[in-house]
Every structure is written in structure tokens, then in C-alpha cells.
């Protein structure tokens, strides 16, 4: 059991270690000449306007995030169904038709409300 999951942790640890080693090498090898102009954010020379970027964003991005959550959860429910589909057979097919039907009603509602329009 644990043997299948140890490589996962090891790989992430090695990837992290490799990244740190590269950054460490760059700290050793790279120069350090700080200056005020270098530390400005790069906005094509507009120094006056560089009062931070975190301002209001289009609502569309948030809507996409919410729809994604809903759809992704539906898909998570569909994966266990897919693994046992051959064993259960035709009953599973109709059950999933019903489930997908509810999903599609929501999808059509979202579409009609214009959430998916990007103009």
C-alpha cells in the first residue's frame, strides 16, 4: 500500500530539491547589483502608473471559476461510475443518463443566462 505512494512524495521532494539547487547555484554564480529603476515593475516604462496591479477584474473570470467547480465535481462523480460500468451494465447507463440530464439542464441555463458569452 505505502509502496505505491512513497515514489510520489519522493518525486515531489526531488523536484523541490532540484529547483532549490538550481536557485542556490544562481545565487552563487549570479551578480547582485540592485538599483531603484530595476526594482520597478516592468510596465513598458509607465513609472507613474505603477501603483499596484491588484485592481478590479472582469466578473467573467469569477463566473468561469464557479461553473468549473460545479462541472468538475460532476465529473468526479462520473469516474467511479465509469470504472464499474461494464459490471453493472444497462442499469448504470440509464442512471447516468438521468444524472447527465440534470447536468445538461444546468448547462443550458448557464448558457441562456449568457455566462459563457465572451465579447
Amino acid at each position: 500500500m505505502s509502496e505505491t505512494y512513497i515514489p510520489m512524495v519522493l518525486m515531489i521532494a526531488i523536484a523541490f530539491g532540484l529547483g532549490s539547487a538550481l536557485v542556490l547555484l544562481s545565487v552563487v554564480l549570479g551578480p547582485k547589483y540592485p538599483s531603484d529603476v530595476k526594482d520597478y515593475p516592468f510596465e513598458c516604462g509607465h513609472l507613474i502608473d505603477s501603483d499596484g496591479a491588484r485592481k478590479k477584474h472582469s466578473i467573467k473570470f469569477y463566473m468561469i471559476a464557479i461553473i468549473f467547480l460545479l462541472f468538475d465535481l460532476e465529473i468526479v462523480f462520473m469516474y467511479p461510475w465509469a470504472t464499474v460500468f461494464r459490471e453493472i451494465g444497462i442499469t448504470a447507463l440509464f442512471e447516468m443518463f438521468f444524472f447527465l440530464g440534470i447536468l445538461v439542464v444546468g448547462y443550458i441555463y448557464v448558457w441562456k443566462k449568457g455566462v459563457l458569452e465572451w465579447e
Binding site: 523536484a15 523541490f16 545565487v27 551578480p31 526594482d39
Partner: peptide
Amino acid sequence: KAMEKEDLMPDDADKPLFKVAPY
């Protein structure tokens, strides 16, 4: 070449997040 370059970080940046993002 990338290793021999200066590792710049803008003043206004959120420094811990900025450092950790490539990892």
C-alpha cells in the same frame, strides 16, 4: 546563462509567493 543572471525581484512584489511560484 540563466544561472549567471541576476535574480531580480520587484519592490512591490509579494516576496515569499514570488519566490515559491516556480517551484
